[in-house]
Deep mutational scan, measured.
Amino acid sequence: LVRYRTISKIPQITLNFVDLKGDPFLASPTSDREIIAPKIKERTHNVTEKVTQVLSLGADVLPEYKLQAPRIHRWTILHYSPFKAVWDWLILLLVIYTAVFTPYSAAFLLKETEEGPPATECGYACQPLAVVDLIVDIMFIVDILINFRTTYVNANEEVVSHPGRIAVHYFKGWFLIDMVAAIPFDLLIFGSGSEELIGLLKTARLLRLVRVARKLDRYSEYGAAVLFLLMCTFALIAHWLACIWYAIGNMEQPHMDSRIGWLHNLGDQIGKPYNSSGLGGPSIKDKYVTALYFTFSSLTSVGFGNVSPNTNSEKIFSICVMLIGSLMYASIFGNVSAIIQRLYSGTARYHTQMLRVREFIRFHQIPNPLRQRLEEYFQHAWSYTNGIDMNAVLKGFPECLQADICLHLNRSLLQHCKPFRGATKGCLRALAMKFKTTHAPPGDTLVHAGDLLTALYFISRGSIEILRGDVVVAILGKNDIFGEPLNLYARPGKSNGDVRALTYCDLHKIHR
């Protein structure tokens, strides 16, 4: 019993810090008490220290592992850092350059016999395009090294910054494609005289377009951006097909006994025919423009016929181009109408809503002055909100995010209106959640004399007048207030005048 009563005193000691020596009952000389009392004092002292730490809000209350900052290894790049964003855009520009100039170089340097010394005699450094290609190869190699040090988000939505895990993730992902696209074939085969082989191998750079397509997928929600990307894709495919079309004609031209190829026909049409040795002929500019003209006309199913396939190889390629053109029509131009419709969806919704308003007016036989006010209010409210119901949009977000959005939407009023000066951010967040926005066209009466005042109004834009009878008592403008002081009276009061809008007004109100 003594032991039980001794232990039962522990909660009292913990909360009230009572010393055991003052209790005459606990001072009985028993061996059990002498053993338990020192333990009680020690526990009391420890609990006292913990309570003191909690009340003082000291940093040592938290466990040590929670006080440590997340460790980022040296030379690790955050995937959302500004440097990584700028670097990704730079790589994107280099990939676009590669997609345009690599097929052009591979096709127009394929057994090209233009006048001038061969590239091997001039030297590697004197070729501007080769120098640019070398810079692109170096940048792609540097990009691989950067990807080995860039964080990523795993399946659990955690940012991984450990170098080993980053390397394994990159090896399992895009490393092989990036490595093949970054191989400097110019340096590996330079001086061997195989410019045709170098041009063909350099087309491996186009593998990076797969990554670019995935990154550009984030802009699919913007109709104008999608339309622009589709047109660029169409032009890029036409450019690639033009390079292939020229390569076919250029390879067949020296081996044909009869002059029936499209390059021969082009030379005869523009007065620059090929001679018996295969030299001469149109310039590279004429060849490229004509090839691009043929691919565009074939892809769009126009086909004027002034550039036509004559050999079997050219006919087979033309059939493939027609098939590609039909697929592009289905996948690209078939979506253009939907994209344009999405661009004008706001206008369509406006006309639909206006039609419903006019049908309501016609069905209920609203008189002319009231009908005009109804239409003007709808037009003004639509121009202010673009038909978007803010309350319906915010309803799907958590309250903390709703408060931040409301604070942002009402920031101008909260910053410049005098009653809100000096208020804490928590108070402003709470008030912003209570605001209701209303609009009024010129001549609209917001409050009639004798109406119950259940709200306090803040003028965000425009001006109003307060009338008693036919006498203008006051004219209020931006950041002015009218209405009933909230919670100042037990019952809502009545208006002693009319409140009429002089201009288009936007008002925020808080109800009782």
Rank of each mutant, 00 (worst) to 15 (best):
K66C: 03
K66D: 04
K66V: 09
P70D: 15
I72Q: 14
I77R: 01
S81K: 14
P82N: 04
F83G: 14
K84R: 01
V86K: 03
V86F: 12
W87K: 01
I91C: 04
L93Q: 01
L93Y: 01
V95I: 13
I96N: 01
I96A: 07
Y97F: 03
T98Q: 01
V100L: 01
F101G: 01
K111E: 11
T113H: 11
T113F: 03
E114D: 12
E114W: 01
E115A: 13
P118H: 09
V132C: 14
L134A: 06
I135R: 01
D137L: 01
M139N: 01
F140L: 01
L145V: 10
E157W: 10
V168E: 05
W174L: 05
A181E: 01
P184G: 01
F185E: 01
G191E: 06
G193M: 04
S194L: 14
E195D: 11
E196Y: 11
L197R: 04
L201W: 01
T203W: 04
L209I: 05
L209E: 01
R214K: 05
L216H: 04
D217H: 05
R218L: 08
Y219G: 03
G223R: 04
L229F: 11
F234C: 04
I237C: 09
A238H: 01
C243R: 01
L263D: 01
K272G: 01
Y274V: 03
G278L: 01
G281T: 03
K287H: 01
K287C: 05
T290H: 05
T290P: 01
T290R: 01
A291P: 01
S298N: 01
T300C: 15
V302I: 02
E314L: 01
V321F: 03
L327Y: 01
Y329S: 08
A330C: 03
S331K: 02
G334N: 01
G334W: 03
N335M: 03
S337L: 03
S337R: 06
A338C: 07
Q341P: 04
R342S: 06
T347S: 10
A348Q: 13
H351C: 03
L355S: 14
I366A: 02
N368K: 12
L370K: 01
R371L: 02
W382Q: 05
W382I: 03
N386K: 04
N391L: 12
N391I: 07
K395Q: 08
P398D: 03
C400N: 10
A403W: 02
C406K: 04
N410T: 07
L413M: 10
H416M: 08
C417S: 13
F420Q: 01
T424H: 09
C427I: 14
L428E: 03
L428G: 02
R429T: 03
L431R: 02
A432R: 01
T437A: 11
T438D: 08
P441S: 08
P442I: 04
D444Q: 07
